[in-house]
């Protein structure tokens, strides 16, 4: 028994060491980034030198970022926005390299330098602003709820005891828990990695409500389901970049605001039937 315990401790220590080494491998880059040559390593110049802007986008959210199964290209409003930013930085809108991200992977991939920007229905929150730079919002939308027609819900007040499906990294969860508290009902939450999985769960009756931002939800309405008129805390999407890279954040913010001021943003949104 004693021997067993000793072995256990030995392997556990080894595991911790290995993991921390791996971990420090990750954070050692941070010192390099924040170090003396920060201006060179982590800036717009770095992207210019590389000649391509690496952007994390959704590949399973129609209209925002969806992989076209015929061409294999990712298409949507957020990809168009990424192209505009590439145009500003590199002078060529085609110089982007997109990579699929999920709610789970977008933060870490930004941290480890795999991508320069996240444009992936990323809602701006105070908490997230402490970890990443966000541009001013490029899209604003309230949290809405998709339900089965035959479930008989007329509004949020009917949903005492209901199970609400939300996407991981749940800002909609916060909005709804707050609203539920205000009107004095209790609701349960189930979190899923992607919207198609949420829709499948609604169809099979696993969840009573599929709740996400209205514009995304619109893509999932069918004959048997409807979007309730209730709207909750407006969600503002922003372009996220690494906290240390203020240079890039400023450039991105300028592009977003210029597009908004010139009215071009509205044209781009209209192209994807958003708003």
């Amino acid at each position: 028994m004693k021997n067993f315990f000793k072995k256990f401790v030995a392997v556990a220590t080894m595991a911790t060491m290995l993991l921390t080494t791996a971990a420090c491998g990750g954070s050692q880059e941070a010192p390099a980034d924040g170090g003396a040559d920060a201006a060179v390593v982590d800036s717009v110049q770095k992207i210019k030198d590389r000649g391509v802007l690496k952007v994390g986008v959704k590949v399973d959210v129609p209209k925002f970022g969806y992989k076209n199964t015929s061409t294999g290209e990712v298409e949507g409003f957020e990809i168009d926005l990424a192209k505009k930013i590439a145009g500003e930085i590199l002078g060529d809108e085609s110089k982007i390299e997109v990579q699929a991200v999920t709610a789970k992977t977008r933060g870490p991939l930004l941290d480890n330098g795999e991508i320069d920007l996240v444009i992936a229905t990323f809602t701006i929150t105070e908490e997230r602003k402490e970890t990443y730079n966000f541009s001013d919002p490029y899209f604003t939308d309230g949290v809405a709820m998709l339900v089965k027609k035959d479930a008989g819900f007329t509004g949020f007040k009917d949903m005492d005891g209901a199970t609400i499906g939300v996407a991981q990294s749940a800002t909609s969860k916060d909005a709804l828990s707050k609203a539920a508290e205000e009107i004095g009902i209790t609701v349960n939450f189930s979190e899923f990695a992607s919207y198609p999985e949420l829709k499948a769960a609604l169809d099979s009756g696993r969840i009573d409500v599929f709740s996400v931002d209205g514009a995304i939800l619109a893509g999932y309405v069918d004959e048997s389901s409807e979007i309730l008129p209730d709207r909750f805390d407006p969600q503002e999407y922003g372009v996220a970049s690494k906290k240390s890279n203020t240079d890039l954040a400023e450039t991105v913010n300028k592009v977003v605001n210029d597009l908004k001021a010139s009215g071009e943003m509205d044209t781009m949104l209209a192209k994807w039937e958003l708003k």
């Binding site: 969806y66 199964t69 198609p196 999985e197 829709k199 099979s204």
Partner: peptide, 11 residues
């Protein structure tokens, strides 16, 4: 298949 699922409308 998960991406393709985004196109499908019925369970």
């Amino acid at each position: 298949s998960m991406i393709l699922m985004g196109q499908l409308r019925t369970g």
